[in-house]
Write a protein that binds this DNA or RNA. Structure first.
Lengths: 245, 245
DNA sequence: CGTTCCGTTGAGATCTATCAACCGTGGTGG
DNA sequence: CCACCACGGTTGATAGATCTCAACGGAACG
């Protein structure tokens, strides 16, 4: 994102990331324990299901997907993680990551070692609250996904998905109507519990109806209102994901 | 459960409930802030979506379901809560309950007021860890549900469900093969993302194949191994829910 | 320039939802 | 005591949405 060693204090994402509710002094202490590693390339793993749980990560640039493996080997994508969003907190309850995180494109992350995060949380009530809030947000997101997966049809799911991504980009200051999807159609279909072909068909149907315009991964939302209606949401409510893990 | 005022220290559920990892002194302090209310009757609400978030609850006896309302009014059941399990932590991230909790039968709960829980957590690192762990467990559960809802067919879902309930009863010292489902078929169908009729058909099919035996809400598992196979699980792994919210 | 991966489109198969009827139980009231 | 009703659960027939299988086009890449 910037040249030498970046810091939370100067990071353009700090208003969205874990430092969210921290004052300057606290942020500095958080900054001290964060490790900034090499970028990881598309397709590489950040951590793997079953590995020992050692760190939580914040996406600085790029995007990740997280997925669990069923015992039959099928993968279920549980979330996409864009810049400023946390990854890995879902595994907090025991010693191993319950899911795998893979880069969708070249990605840089901030690594926050768990032991240090825990001892810092012991001292900083605000950080603690922020962590709990982030986990609560993740639970809300997952429960919205459960609703989507068990009650919505293909068009509703795709509409919800597009609006979710739109809102998340918008929150980071990017266009809410013109963006690039970092994940493949296959990933989208897996996430939404549909076949790839169904995703493709819904995209073209939406395009024919003038709701969206797509060219590969580039998407333009032309009629967000109708999309919101389709998704079964009001335009000011959440639609699946809330930005943090 | 018992006559006058019960206490965490003597509660038969304390090895499964929030006091899980607390020492005696800490448990006593937790015990002090817990309120034991009147039993709530079948169909009554413990709390409602949108209400101010004030307390977390532990089920002492009976059972609850929690569900969210989509904007079209449809309800999506996100979990069932048996004795010793926590309810309400899912809402931790903001000021309002994001879901409703309704009693499936006459139910008694321990109420833990949030403000007091928070200040107690400020002092007791073990309690804090326990809370985080519980939330992490809930996230894992929800992600397992996402997998179930997007990848499993009707038989696999029902098998997973029955084994989940079985494990949870078993953990509380009850039979893993002979139990009573506290929820209706409609609730099960809603939870599993299927039509009631499908649930009914799968139950009878399982019964014809000698896998289970049912009479109304009473269930006997005759062939857990095949059920585990169907569910796509090994018999020692989790299958959806892990006991705590 | 060939290969591979990804996305799209078409035709047919399949699972589950839907609609409808029926049954047993429990509660209510005449 | 019995008729009646409401409700939950079961079963059958049909319809529909999505999956599966298959083929094709284009972009990316070595």
């Amino acid at each position: 994102m910037r040249g030498s060693q970046p810091h939370c204090q100067t990071c353009s994402l700090n208003a969205l990331c874990l430092p969210l509710s921290l004052n300057d002094a606290d942020m500095e202490r958080l900054d001290d324990i964060i490790r900034r590693g090499r970028p990881i390339q598309k397709g590489q793993l950040l951590f793997q299901q079953g590995e020992q749980f050692q760190s939580v990560f914040a996406v600085r640039t790029g995007a990740l997907k997280t997925y669990t493996l069923a015992s039959n080997g099928e993968e279920q994508i549980t979330g996409f993680h864009l810049a400023s969003e946390l990854v890995g907190l879902a595994g907090y309850d025991n010693g191993n990551y319950p899911l795998t995180a893979k880069a969708l494109e070249t990605t840089t992350v901030c690594e926050i070692p768990l032991t240090q995060l825990e001892s810092l949380a012991d001292e900083l009530p605000d950080l603690r609250k922020q962590l709990m809030r982030t986990m609560g947000t993740e639970i809300r997101h997952d429960q919205n996904m459960m609703l989507l997966l068990s009650k919505k049809n293909a068009e509703e799911r795709v509409a919800s998905f597009l609006l979710d991504i739109s809102q998340r980009y918008s929150r980071r200051g990017f266009s809410a109507t013109h963006f690039r999807l970092p994940m493949s159609r296959v990933d989208i279909s897996n996430y939404l519990g549909l076949a790839v072909e169904t995703i493709s068909r819904v995209f073209t149907r939406f395009q024919k109806n003038g709701l969206i315009e797509t060219q590969g991964k580039e998407v333009i939302l032309h009629d967000s209102d109708t999309l919101y209606e389709l998704a079964g949401l009001n335009s000011d409510s959440e639609c699946g994901h809330d930005g943090d893990e």
